[in-house]
């Protein structure tokens, strides 16, 4: 699209939307948010950039092919079920530990969050694969 305003706005909006998607991802589970909606927001950021600037530039910013994101996400989601197996519990039972991140003590970190990261990557990959393929037909 040949609009200077839109191109400049998309360049600013992409990092903001990626940050917002990570915020949604991190505070899921207890508050509204989670991997699915986070992945959707991140994907709409890249789609916005592809619409405003062009498709190859948006692909270059993603660095990896969307298929790689899907497979990596599925692998992470499956691996999140393994820790419960190691202590003789059913596959995918939630395990939680308390860790210290950036000076905050007692931050709860568990396998549901790892699963959410996997969902985030899968949703991002699937949405971008569909959108980029549809966009490519017009190039």
């Amino acid at each position: 699209m040949n609009s200077v305003i839109f191109q400049v706005a998309a360049r600013v909006l992409l990092p903001v939307m990626l940050l917002l998607s990570v915020v949604f991802l991190l505070r899921g589970h207890n508050e509204p948010g989670g991997g699915f909606i986070g992945g959707l927001v991140a994907a709409s950021g890249y789609i916005l950039y592809a619409l405003a600037v062009n498709l190859p530039e948006s692909r270059r910013l993603l660095h990896v092919h969307p298929r790689t994101l899907i497979s990596t996400g599925l692998l992470i989601a499956i691996l999140s079920g393994v820790p419960a197996l190691l202590v003789d519990q059913p596959f995918m039972k939630g395990k939680w530990i308390e860790v210290t991140i950036a000076g905050f003590e007692g931050v709860k970190f568990g396998t549901p969050f790892v699963f959410d990261v996997g969902v985030y990557l899968v949703v991002l990959g699937v949405t971008l694969l569909m959108a980029f393929t549809l966009e490519e037909r017009y190039q």
Binding site: M1, L20, F24, P32, L40, V41, S44, L48, L51
Partner: peptide, 26 residues
């Protein structure tokens, strides 16, 4: 708790309208 849903709906509505406009233009 629903305030973030408003944000999401606004962003997705904006992007979908842009995509629709580009589709019509092409």
């Amino acid at each position: 708790v629903t305030f973030d849903a408003v944000l999401i709906v606004s962003i997705l509505g904006f992007v979908s309208t842009l995509a629709f406009a580009q589709f019509i233009g092409r």
